[in-house]
Simulated assay, not measured.
Amino acid sequence: MDIARSGLGPYVESWSPGAVEDDDVLSPAPVAALSALLDRPEPVAAVGDALPPLWHWLHFLQWPAQRELGEDGHPRHGHFLPPIPDRQRMFAGGRCDIIEPLRIGDPARRISSVGTVTTKQGKTGELLFVTVRYEYLQEGRTRLVEEQDIVYRSGRSDGRHPTGVDTSATPHSGAPWQLPLQPDPRLLFRFSALTANAHRIHYDAPYAQEQEGYPGLVVHGPLLVLSMLELVRLNAPDHPVRSLSYRLRSPAFAGERLLATGAPADHDAALQIATHRDQRHATAEVTFA
Score class of each variant (00 low, 15 high):
4 A>I: 03
4 A>V: 04
12 V>S: 04
12 V>E: 05
15 W>F: 02
17 P>D: 06
22 D>L: 14
38 L>E: 14
44 V>E: 13
47 V>K: 09
51 L>P: 07
59 H>W: 02
62 Q>A: 11
62 Q>C: 02
68 E>C: 11
75 P>D: 14
78 G>Q: 10
79 H>T: 09
80 F>H: 05
92 A>K: 08
99 I>D: 13
101 P>D: 10
102 L>A: 11
105 G>F: 12
107 P>W: 10
109 R>T: 15
120 K>C: 12
126 E>Y: 07
130 V>T: 06
135 E>A: 12
136 Y>S: 05
142 T>V: 11
142 T>Q: 05
142 T>L: 14
142 T>M: 08
144 L>G: 07
145 V>G: 02
147 E>K: 09
148 Q>N: 12
150 I>A: 09
152 Y>F: 15
156 R>W: 01
157 S>N: 09
157 S>M: 14
159 G>E: 14
160 R>Y: 13
167 T>P: 04
167 T>V: 14
171 P>Q: 05
180 P>L: 05
206 P>C: 00
208 A>L: 03
211 Q>R: 06
217 L>I: 02
218 V>Q: 00
221 G>A: 02
226 L>M: 06
230 E>G: 04
232 V>A: 07
232 V>H: 03
235 N>E: 10
247 R>T: 09
252 A>S: 12
254 A>E: 00
255 G>N: 03
256 E>C: 06
262 G>Y: 06
273 I>Q: 02
274 A>F: 03
275 T>P: 11
277 R>W: 12
278 D>T: 11
285 E>L: 14
